[in-house]
Design a protein around this nucleic acid. Structure first.
Lengths: 226, 226
DNA sequence: CGGTTTTTTAACATTATTTTAACTTTAAGA
DNA sequence: TCTTAAAGTTAAAATAATGTTAAAAAACCG
């Protein structure tokens, strides 16, 4: 993909480092967004849907590991690349032990040229494999990358939340997803919405699909099943 | 698994934090146990065999990391989930360095809702992988993940309580489950329902299965046997 | 900004599930 | 074989969970 269409979210609490990375990556043509802690990073990520997130590990408010975990829990960031930024003498292998789903580590300080080539390599590595994002079930076809759903060759329009919810259910056909699970994976752990929100979304999805492939298991949750 | 059957051991030397977590998790129906240092935690863990232990890192007498290490050395806690509780600004590289086999960590301060959903996610994550979700007995197949029961390739519908009851009996074919046991494991310890409730559910299950695989042991309980 | 779409809420309706209660039957031991 | 506690049966009542709607609130977009 072109740098021009590639969004990178940089997260660090030290303005100098942010500025350094910002400057060097913008020069390459990437779209750069900044956040100064994990909290901000999550909010911004929801908005801009970056392709790559570079997270400092130690930050106030919410550290990088925590932010990464939360990202990894949400379906919409399934194919976002996440890299940690670490001080050179930190012991990464141990940090990695926490296994929160980071794709790479970048140590600082780092020289501009090295930074840029690492970023390029990272994006290359993950755009190659992530390509197959299309799931087909019966006459239903959903493409996570294009955010599109097709039924009987007819394109259906699903806004974000509906799409995420449908996408989650379809990710494991037959499995019952509890309301808690759905909440946490579509809305995230921090967001509080009322009881009926999920139902309303389910209703809209059902309406568009025009069938009964989404089953209610009362007292448990919902599942996609044909 | 139901919250009612899930034991959580909370370990912290600050009474306020214990109380906070205790209150919020009890509200969800979990069985909560408390300890105020690593020493106590180990003793209590041996007694109650919790499913999840939340350990503060810094405590007098025995800190969380030491406690975790000892737990990990005992086979009986192989599938106990252990999470660390850390202050938000603590240095993870150090904590991580200890690599004593924690499954997760939770930063404080934490909001009640977030705490609860984190706990749920944790339990889900670790119960899903280990346990075989499909049980087959004769022509009967029950799938906890799909919440479905199939007999002779015919799908039968079991509402929640019936499903859980059947599922319990089938979890150990031949074993007699007393009414008390059934009550406590399907309904939970602090819910009081009348005497005939279990019978009615048993009746419905028998009706749907259409056989006599559920045997009554008068004065004792029920068992599933073919 | 101002219009448009998406998301959430809140009130209410509907339904499936769970429980109760009254009554009957069964089985085990005196 | 009686007695009695325990379990079975049934239908109706109670409850909880979900469905539905329209409208308010947010987010989005030029």
């Amino acid at each position: 993909m072109n740098p021009e269409n590639t969004k990178i979210l940089l997260v660090d609490d030290e303005p100098d480092i942010l500025e350094f990375m910002d400057y060097n990556l913008k020069k390459e043509g990437y779209q750069i967004f900044l956040a100064k802690n994990g909290q901000e990073a999550l909010e911004m990520a929801q908005k801009i849907k970056p392709h790559l997130i570079i997270l400092d590990i130690m930050m106030p408010v919410m550290d990088g590991i925590e932010a990464c975990r939360q990202l990894r829990n949400m379906t919409e960031f399934n194919n976002t690349v996440v890299a940690f930024l670490t001080a050179r003498n930190e012991d990464y292998s141990q940090i990695a032990g926490f296994d929160v789903g980071a794709d790479d580590y970048i140590s600082k300080p780092i020289k501009p040229r090295v930074l840029v080539s690492r970023i390029k390599a990272l994006l290359r590595r993950f755009s190659a494999n992530g390509a197959e994002e299309i799931v087909r079930i019966g006459s239903l076809e959903i493409d996570r990358e294009k955010y599109s759903v097709t039924k009987d060759n007819q394109e259906l329009v699903f806004p974000r939340k509906e799409f995420e919810l449908l996408s989650l259910l379809i990710s494991k056909p037959g499995k019952v997803f509890t309301r808690d699970e759905i909440m946490s994976r579509v809305w995230g752990d921090d967001i509080i919405v009322g009881d009926r929100t999920i139902d309303v979304h389910i209703r809209k999805i059902r309406e568009k699909l025009g069938d009964d492939s989404i089953k209610t298991i009362k007292g448990v949750g919902y599942k996609f099943d044909t």
